[in-house]
Design a protein around this nucleic acid. Structure first.
Lengths: 153, 153
DNA sequence: TTATCTGCAAACGCTTTGCATCGGA
DNA sequence: TCCGATGCAAAGCGTTTGCAGATAA
């Protein structure tokens, strides 16, 4: 079931001049299982739990290799550690200030620098948008606690 | 000459319920002298060089206080350390992949969430755009070294 | 006078590096 | 076979925390 993934990853790593090793395949499979926006540590924890891989260094190494091969995209959403996601469709991120949850947001234009700066700063090859705000769940929790709190505060 | 700054900072800190202390005034003055996009360490180095302040902790403390008072804005441009700039007009950032230089870029709309995500993820109060690419200087250097290199490589 | 702030020292979390060993092609 | 990858251990770097003494209001 995950063999097609392994085959594709193997091929794309080789295309990038990299070897298809056990840790690398394990890391990208973990990323697929866990879904987007995982930190290196979360990937590591998952692999340790499933007794697949125990070295933190290898997780870092593998993430770098997979990113080089264009299979994984690092995304800094400003929450301490770097997060990683499978490189599928290009999108932006919304981060809830309360709970820290990260959601994907479609980009305005389908192409990869989906925005162009007004100023002529040079050649732009990428534009990342990071939205901040309050997610629906936290807004709901707010409303609920407002009811509960009554006129306190 | 910098007294108006000191007075304004004092007032705005007090408005935020914070004290106007020597380190805080020193940090914002350093930020003004150095210009935008300084790391805590760069601010610290500047203040040490000018024999104004020697504690790294106080630089961090002050930056937090100034950010709370809305006088300073932290901007994560994805280069390891957090950078800080005086909170003036709202803008985005362009980071050169070669030299790491950061340039300011006007936002699309003057208001503060200058972009709206397509998806309804919740209440968005901020949108930061981070552009990556190659700045003019590095493009120029490239052209020059291409000439020099001739057919090497 | 007192709550706030400072600033040293130490801890902390994420990430990288050095290096001997291992293994994919 | 041999270069590239692994993975332990340790360092590195930016940042935060604990706390006793100092200070703005």
């Amino acid at each position: 079931m995950a063999d097609e993934l392994a085959d594709e990853v193997t091929e794309r790593l080789r295309d990038a001049g990299l070897r298809a090793t056990r840790p690398r395949l394990a890391v990208i499979q973990a990323l697929r299982v866990l879904g987007g926006h995982q930190t290196a540590d979360e990937v590591h924890a998952h692999l340790v739990k499933n007794d697949v891989l125990h070295s933190r260094t290898s997780v870092y190494n593998s993430l770098v290799a997979l990113a080089d091969a264009g299979l994984v995209r690092p995304a800094d959403v400003g929450r301490g550690a770097m997060t990683y996601e499978e490189a599928g469709t290009w999108h932006h991120h919304f981060v809830c200030r309360r709970c820290g949850q990260v959601s994907d947001v479609s980009c305005v234009v389908g192409a990869k620098p989906c925005l162009t700066p007004r100023e002529d700063v040079g050649v732009v090859d990428e534009a990342q948008v990071l939205f901040h705000g309050t997610c629906h769940r936290c807004l709901g929790a707010d409303a609920a606690s407002d009811d509960q709190a009554g006129d306190l505060r």
